[in-house]
Write a protein that binds this DNA or RNA. Sequence first.
DNA 1: ATTATCTATAGATCTATAGATAATGC
DNA 2: ATTATCTATAGATCTATAGATAATGC
Lengths: 246, 246
Amino acid sequence: MAPAPAKGRPRVGVSAHPDLPAPEQILRAAAQLFVDCGYDATSTRAIAAAVGIRQASLYYHFASKADILAELLSRTVAPSLDAAERLLADDGDPAVRLHELVTVDCRLLLDAPANVGALYLLPEVRAERFADFRAQRTRLRDAYGTLVEQAAAPGAALGPLDVLTDVVFGLVESVIGVRGREPSGGQDATVGAGQDPAVGADGGAHAVPDSEALVTTVARSVLRVLGWDEDGLARVERTSGERPRA
Amino acid sequence: MAPAPAKGRPRVGVSAHPDLPAPEQILRAAAQLFVDCGYDATSTRAIAAAVGIRQASLYYHFASKADILAELLSRTVAPSLDAAERLLADDGDPAVRLHELVTVDCRLLLDAPANVGALYLLPEVRAERFADFRAQRTRLRDAYGTLVEQAAAPGAALGPLDVLTDVVFGLVESVIGVRGREPSGGQDATVGAGQDPAVGADGGAHAVPDSEALVTTVARSVLRVLGWDEDGLARVERTSGERPRA
DNA sequence: ATTATCTATAGATCTATAGATAATGC
DNA sequence: ATTATCTATAGATCTATAGATAATGC
């Protein structure tokens, strides 16, 4: 665990995360800036400054600014897509599996550093350069579609299934918007994956709701949107909690 | 209805909407570009080109590029906020009023040219320059909050109300994302306010779901999320349709 | 005279490349 | 020798201002 003797010419500045490999430092800084200011509005100079290096030094690690965003997008969507395709292949009650997918996906969005889910919403990702990422998102949405179709409550007036899928997808993504109203704390205000520290006993109303309440509400809302009543809800939530966590 | 004799020096190019006043032409072109490419990524030169004028000529009508976005944001949120505060002041069943607000708001988002609701999601609106707009959005969200509190179904396990409000708000905004998957048709592919042409008999699955099905699904989903069962839903939808439309 | 455009340009960016340099490690 | 940085800069932007110009209208 020695601090690693530091190769190469020394930097002019200091990084917020000196222990990480330089490419990781760059990705973190860029993520925060892209989310806060947008892609085009973030200069490579600003990214470099956050890392404590000169603008040109970025290009030792990434061939272009677009490559940085592409890497961030890829890393952000991959875990969700993994979870979705694992749950698709699985058998078992579709409502339970959809509930699990929603829960996992919301947690990923909430626990990710710098609210990187917001990168999905940047207009710049429509560029041809990011077509691969968009294809992955389409696969994710299709997985939701398949589960929505199978998990719809019998007998409810639900309308067209593709519309319902869009609504469910939007419901999950709403957590990005909720996080967007965060006090924009520094990039170290990371919340440990899966469990909040200090959620404890206070039931007070935060400006930003605590993560687990949000996840529970979204997951439950998805089931309600699919037409399940209180009994169905309770059954699914019970089963979902019991299944082994990957 | 004469084409208006055209004052001032002639333009070098042609506009897509030559009949509108120049500032309106500029706002339309900018809206489309801001939504498609982002604010920073859209140059004043690109806006001018879409209007058929030179870049510098924009500044005869607007003092800055930021002023153009501010005007678009203001125009987009104002009708929603009007509807919300009118329905807040109204009396009557809160669930019905919330249902009406959701319906009106979704229609505004869907019928607006160029999917201007997507402007809300641009990272650049966090800048101090757009604080007025953000304050209006906060008022809109608070109106939703008040109605959500009053409209929640008795006896349902709904969790914290502010979380629920965020979810409802996100549900409404999900129509922005759905429209975002449009084939990005030209800026003339406007759908008439409130009713779709050619929605007719085909029940085929479009890439983009037709507007009214989406509005109905979102509004219904909101009620389901608030814990209403099929009977409550039917009652609210019946009443909501009967009330006079503003 | 008024209006709405035009041309030209200042000054400030921004991305990416070329080549130099200051460390470590062999 | 290798690594990771640095300095310097080319070339391409971009926003906004200054002042000229081509119409209409009185």
